[in-house]
């Protein structure tokens, strides 16, 4: 229904999902220790907001603790991804965070610059970070 527009680069962020009329992110547990969760997001079709916007995504509960991601969008383009809440209870958490957070940022920025809809292959960042990132992008876009 709606073409992908050049002035709407956020649409191309596809770490989780981006759609015009309806899109969604679904976590499906193929192993028993993860609680299945479903989040459906409908996206608006408004043009990209000009200027700088900082938007914080939903807090997503993971089995390690809550995670929450914040994005900065300048003239409709993603410029920064940071985590505002993440598990820090033990050294393993800190190890995962030191690995996952820079990677999340790198993947998000790369997906945008390559003008792609989705990625096949290795994914390094946890589901919680992706889900929070997507909710932030959804909010920033409308």
């Amino acid at each position: 229904m709606h073409a992908l527009r050049k002035n709407h680069p956020l649409r191309r962020i596809v770490l989780a999902s981006a759609a015009t009329v309806s899109g969604m992110v679904l976590l499906l547990s193929l192993k028993p220790h993860t609680t299945p969760a479903v989040a459906v997001t409908a996206r608006s079709t408004a043009p990209a907001v000009q200027g700088t916007q900082t938007v914080t995504g939903d807090t997503i509960q993971t089995r390690w603790g809550p995670v929450q991601v914040r994005v900065t969008v300048k003239d409709g383009k993603l410029t920064e991804v940071t985590a505002v809440t993440y598990p820090t209870d033990n050294p393993r958490d800190q190890e995962i965070n030191s690995y996952a957070l820079p990677r999340l940022r790198s993947e998000a920025l790369q997906a945008q610059s390559a003008d792609i809809d989705t990625v096949s292959g290795a994914t390094y960042t946890s589901d919680g970070y992706r889900q929070s990132l997507q909710s932030a992008l959804d909010s920033a876009d409308s």
Binding site: M1, A18, A19, V25, L26, L27, K31, T34
Partner: peptide, 19 residues
Amino acid sequence: MGTVFSFDVRGGEPLAVQA
């Protein structure tokens, strides 16, 4: 860790697509 399934859907009638 579970597997994430992402849907990206374009066009269609919104209610029918959501269903």
